Simulated scan of single mutants.
Amino acid sequence: MKTLWGDYYFDEKTKRVCKGAQSKGQKPMFVQFILENLWSVYEAIIIRPDNEKLEKIATSIGATLTPRDIQHTDPSVPLHLIFNQWLPIASAVFDIVVVQVPNPKALNIEKIEQLMCNKSRRFDTLLSENQQLKQAFINCSSDDQEPVIIYVSKLFYVNKNALSQNRHKSLTAEDIAQERELIKQKVAEETTTTNEELTNETVENDDQSTTEKDVGDSIKTESNENMNENVFLAFARVYSERLKRGQKIFVLSPCHDPTLFVGKNLNEVSAHNISHHAHEFIVQDLYLMMGREF
């Protein structure tokens, strides 16, 4: 990976990486192995359209393009299709983050102490119980016996519709039938309340007018009302133990003072009542962030 950048080239005869690409008139490795492959795709689709060449490129990289995709009048369609299959940006970025971001076990002692106390305090002034957590950072273990230590580096909000569990799902015949019955009951109750003199026959006729479109519109309206709001997500790094749904944890701000909790029973009093810089929190959902997908 190091020689992919800089003044290096690949010698086809000796099968070796050599230095001095510019002085020897050779293509740098980044140009040869990265840019030229990208250029060839753009050339076959946009600059000099060549369907036969595009089919060969798709086959060589394992991408699937139908004849309709290849012959599409809008060149951006096959371009997006081939790149989404060949180099999906979310997976590519995630993979390189895993490779390049330092392992938590590689943390030095100074960095651990900086994470555990703010700039206004020294590590050796913390309570002994807090100082003992330093070993949990060093162990970086996922064992259930270890304390849960998580560092939240970013907090942001997204619309509820963007979350995986809230994405629109197509209704099955059974779902439509159930919703129809619920709407029938609701219509019957409202009709009875507003006009007690209505006969059962009239109510039945009104019920029969309920169509699948009414069901879909009702579901869509209720869904839009519930989903038209934002929720906050925290981007965090786990240094000890694991996060699980339904788990109770404490969110501590940089101004948190652990001395305020000495002698306090958190089963009897809320953490927030002791300090405004500590909050009890129940983990609801966990997400793997891949680009815009959660």
Rank of each mutant, 00 (worst) to 15 (best):
H80C: 10
E181G: 06
I176N: 05
F83I: 05
D143P: 01
Y157W: 12
W86H: 06
N161M: 13
Q100V: 15
L79Q: 02
W86R: 05
Y151V: 14
L163C: 00
I82W: 03
C117N: 00
P78F: 07
V98Y: 08
V158K: 04
S170Y: 15
L107A: 07
N103E: 07
P88M: 04
A90D: 13
P104N: 09
N161T: 14
N139C: 00
D143L: 01
S120R: 13
H80I: 10
P147F: 00
I82G: 02
E174P: 01
K169F: 00
S141R: 07
D175E: 11
I89Y: 01
E146Y: 08
K134E: 10
L163Y: 10
F123D: 08
I89E: 06
N166Y: 14
W86E: 04
F123Y: 15
D95W: 07
A136Q: 12
T172V: 12
V97P: 04
Q131L: 05
Q145L: 14
K169S: 12
S128I: 03
E179K: 14
E174S: 09
R180Y: 03
Q145W: 08
A136W: 06
S128M: 03
K105C: 14
R180T: 08
V101F: 06
L81Q: 15
L79F: 09
E174R: 10
A92S: 11
K111I: 03
F123G: 01
L155G: 04
N84H: 06
R122D: 14
I176C: 12
L107I: 03
N161K: 14
E179P: 07
D143V: 02
Q145A: 06
Q165Y: 10
L133P: 00
L127E: 05
D124W: 12
L126R: 08
N161A: 12
P78G: 02
K105L: 15
I112K: 00
K160V: 08
L133A: 05
V93I: 14
F94C: 07
Q131M: 11
Y151D: 08
V148T: 10
L163P: 05
N130C: 04
Q135E: 09
S141D: 13
I89D: 00
N103I: 05
E129R: 08
E181F: 15
L107S: 04
N103S: 04
Q131W: 02
R121A: 02
I96M: 12
A92D: 07
